[in-house]
């Protein structure tokens, strides 16, 4: 990349501007990455609590439904499940954590009273009610886990992207720019040295020319005297 740029002062100034901007961007992105990791750590703690709660709720719900199946039969449990009329719904709102939009999930109609469930009280047993209640609790945990895990996934993506940008700046863009800067500086210095050398040569040549000229002008009057002497001595019987 360094050799692709023209070694001119204009390009050097442009590269210096880009280096300044990239260094500033690198610093900012590093801060963003660190901030995101800190936020992520908080969410991770919460996620682990939610996860263990989810496992407990699932085990409990499994026990309850197995009991209902054993005592009332699978058909009765499936029949009750098919009769449900109230269905849980979720609505999501956006929340912004350091530029990452994460959802806030709100649920409705998850926990229901016995009469809201839709299956008759007479045809079913308390074990089915207990199983339904346990699964409603499990659904609440699932919704909470979904909120936390979505936030985690989104933040992880953002962390990865930011990390990649930081690395690209640190290991690719900035070194290339420094190389280009060094290359242009060296070339300009070389050009300057050549220019100085050329000027010195021109100066030397001019001095030599001047010297030669001066020598010529010094020689001219001497040849004039000789001529005069020659004319004076050469004509003895001139008068």
């Amino acid at each position: 990349m360094a050799k692709d740029v023209k070694p001119t002062r204009k390009n050097l100034m442009a590269i210096e501007d880009r280096i300044e901007l990239s260094e500033r961007g690198h610093g900012t992105l590093e801060k963003k990455r660190d901030g995101l990791i800190m936020e992520f750590m908080d969410i991770l703690d919460k996620a682990q609590d939610v996860r263990s709660g989810l496992s407990d709720d699932y085990e409990e719900a499994q026990k309850k439904i197995n009991m209902a199946r054993a005592m009332d039969g699978d058909v009765a449990v499936r029949g009750a499940a098919a009769a449900l009329q109230e269905h849980p719904e979720i609505t999501t709102e956006a929340k912004n954590i350091m530029g990452v939009v994460v959802p806030q999930i709100e649920s409705s109609r998850v926990s229901k009273s016995v009469d809201q469930r839709g299956y008759g009280i007479m045809g079913t047993s308390a074990r089915i009610d207990e199983a339904a209640e346990a699964y409603e609790d499990l659904l609440e945990s699932v919704i909470l886990a979904a909120e936390v895990e979505t936030a985690m996934k989104k933040m992880l993506r953002e962390i990865e992207t930011t990390k990649r940008r930081v690395n690209a700046l640190e290991f690719k863009l900035l070194p290339d720019l420094y190389d280009s800067q060094e290359y242009i500086e060296q070339k300009l210095e070389e050009q300057e040295r050549e220019e100085i050398f050329r000027l010195k040569k021109i100066k030397e040549k001019k001095e030599q020319e001047e010297k030669a000229e001066r020598a010529d002008t010094d020689d001219e009057p001497e040849s004039g005297d000789e001529l005069e002497q020659a004319t004076a001595g050469g004509l003895p019987g001139g008068d």
Partner: peptide
């Protein structure tokens, strides 16, 4: 982003029955 959505369950009938008991229809 604020639209009403549902919960869905995928798996064996034994796995989904419990969730259907809690009202999941998808």
């Amino acid at each position: 982003m604020s639209q009403s959505q549902e919960i869905a369950v995928v798996g064996s009938p034994e796995f989904t029955t419990g969730f259907r008991l809690a009202g999941v229809r998808r």
